[in-house]
């Protein structure tokens, strides 16, 4: 603020500046709008394609489907090999979110409130797992889960995704928890609350926005991940993303069906994001703003 004050060129220039700055704002808005159009175009094209028949797709470009058809969606909702992929994905993603939150909540509390031996190193170690290339772990993962008898179960994928979701959850929650003053904890203990009771009835409600955002992030990263999910499943727990890749290679050119399946993978995310829209920004900053 003081630096800006030093820079003041003089009050006479103020009206001109105001006008110029409002022009700038609209420039920036134009950039934003252009970017959103750029974001939406490919998605629009896929949605457009999902309502076309394959003949129409291959016969030439049309900006709107000439003979809109729901056939592609009907195929997906009536063929178990397609819709079971969605059920599998939603199942393990939910499982992963629950596990991640359950273990990350107490840990984040510990990191935000206490100093203890090795705290910083454990925290960093957790983060390195978020940053490890999943390709590195593919083979041992496959064998590990086969050995413990979890291969091709939803739990296997949920546990594997904990590798990057738990560290992330701890990081975000720690940021939110650090924003709650310590005095609240101390008051509660003086009032005779036990730790579990304090945590459940006083503390959790205070950071519920943080919990929601964290759940959203766990959902998101588990939903979009394919490499591990595909490696750890074969039939019973195969995610929708993997179903899509196999179908492409098998039948070759069923573009309409592929587009419809793609549209359906976007919907759950779009629904979930609506619920946390007011907290997204803070969440993306990992609670550290």
């Amino acid at each position: 603020m003081s630096k800006a004050a030093v820079l003041a060129p003089g009050s006479l220039a103020a009206p001109a500046n105001v006008r110029r700055s409002s022009a700038r704002v609209s420039n920036r808005t134009i950039v934003l709008v252009c970017y959103i159009v750029f974001l939406m175009l490919p998605i629009y094209w896929m949605v457009n394609m999902s309502f076309k028949t394959n003949e129409e797709i291959l016969s030439g470009l049309t900006l709107f489907p000439r003979n809109p058809t729901l056939q592609n969606y009907v195929t997906i909702f009536t063929d178990p090999s397609w819709y079971s992929g969605y059920i599998n994905s939603i199942y393990y993603v939910t499982l992963n979110t629950v596990i991640s939150l359950t273990v990350a909540l107490p840990a984040a509390y510990a990191f935000s409130r206490y100093r203890f031996i090795g705290d910083k190193h454990v925290f960093f170690w957790l983060l390195t797992n978020r940053m490890a290339p999943p390709a590195v772990f593919l083979l041992p993962f496959f064998q590990l889960y086969q050995t413990v008898g979890l291969f091709d179960t939803h739990l296997a994928v949920a546990l594997a995704h904990c590798l990057f979701n738990v560290p992330l959850a701890v990081w975000i929650l720690e940021g939110f928890m650090s924003g709650v003053p310590r005095e609240i904890d101390e008051m509660a203990y003086i009032d005779g609350y036990s730790f579990p009771r304090f945590f459940g009835t006083v503390f959790l409600p205070m950071i519920r926005a943080g919990v929601g955002v964290t759940a959203f992030f766990c959902f998101m990263f588990s939903w979009v991940e394919l490499l591990l999910a595909r490696t750890l499943t074969s039939v019973d727990a195969k995610p929708i993303a993997a179903t899509m890749t196999r179908t492409v290679s098998a039948s070759g050119m069923d573009w309409g069906l592929l587009a419809a399946a793609g549209v359906l993978t976007i919907l759950p995310g779009a629904l979930v994001i609506w619920f946390v829209r007011n907290y997204i920004a803070k969440g993306f900053a990992l609670g550290r703003v």
Partner: peptide, 29 residues
Amino acid sequence: LVLLALPLLIPFNVVGTIWQIFGRGDIGL
């Protein structure tokens, strides 16, 4: 916010698929 966050929620391989469809000379915009 919701529009901006949308691409982040698309499975990685679907992102590839979207661009595959979008970029092709014969059927892509």
